[in-house]
């Protein structure tokens, strides 16, 4: 699959080393890499980058991040990346810098990108309540029927909060049915394992 970068990305890459000075470009590249690898705001900001041409610097940041991310996505080899950047007239020193950064951090970028994606909901936590009507305005006594309120959720990794994925109510028989079906899964697993 060939690498396809939009014009704005290419423009941002070409600006590095030419319209933005060399050492600021290098700082920009390392800063962008840090931000890409650790998305939490634990990366300290480097205000020097934006001292001179702030919008060009921001465009170049976007360009560097796009380059790294799209190259990781297509599993581009470093040599192919080098030829592509040469074809698009990126400044040679900057080119070397980008390619070495990509090569050195390729594994971490891949891991970071592998965690990205859509998936079925992953349930790791169950909360439950047994509720029974004691009394209501519509009848003199309660039906005495128990209702099981079950809340299936998971803990968010980034902020530790619990998010509900499914919440449902069922009667005793339905709960027994569910439990029996789940036990069947366990039995089948053990049977297959033996």
């Amino acid at each position: 699959m060939s690498l396809k970068l939009s014009d704005s990305v290419l423009k941002g890459l070409q600006q590095l080393g030419t319209e933005i000075s060399m050492d600021i470009s290098k700082k920009l590249i390392t800063n962008s890499l840090k931000h890409t690898l650790s998305p939490e705001s634990s990366v300290p900001s480097v205000p020097d980058i934006y001292a001179a041409n702030a919008d060009k610097a921001k465009l170049s940041e976007y360009a560097v991040v796009s380059l790294l991310v799209v190259a990781t996505k297509h599993c581009y080899e470093a040599t192919a990346l080098r030829t592509y950047l040469e074809k698009n007239e990126v400044q040679p020193i900057i080119l070397e810098e980008l390619v070495t950064t990509y090569e050195n951090h390729r594994k971490e970028l891949t891991i970071r990108q592998l965690q990205l994606g859509s998936d079925f909901p992953h349930i790791t936590d169950v909360q439950w309540r047994i509720m029974a009507d004691v009394r209501s305005s519509t009848s003199d006594c309660s039906s005495g029927e128990l209702n099981f309120h079950v809340n299936l959720g998971r803990y968010n990794e980034s902020n530790g909060a619990r998010e509900t994925i499914v919440e449902f109510v069922c009667s005793t028989e339905e709960l027994q049915l569910l439990i029996n079906k789940l036990k069947e899964i366990e039995r089948h697993c053990e049977k297959v394992a033996n």
Binding site: K4, H35, P39, V69
Partner: peptide, 27 residues
Amino acid sequence: IMNIFQQTAKQDFDLISSVLHQNSFDL
């Protein structure tokens, strides 16, 4: 204008997803 890191961090969007989306959209 905020840089892309600030834009994505503030509103709980993912940086890599945003960058990929923007690139594909421009193309």
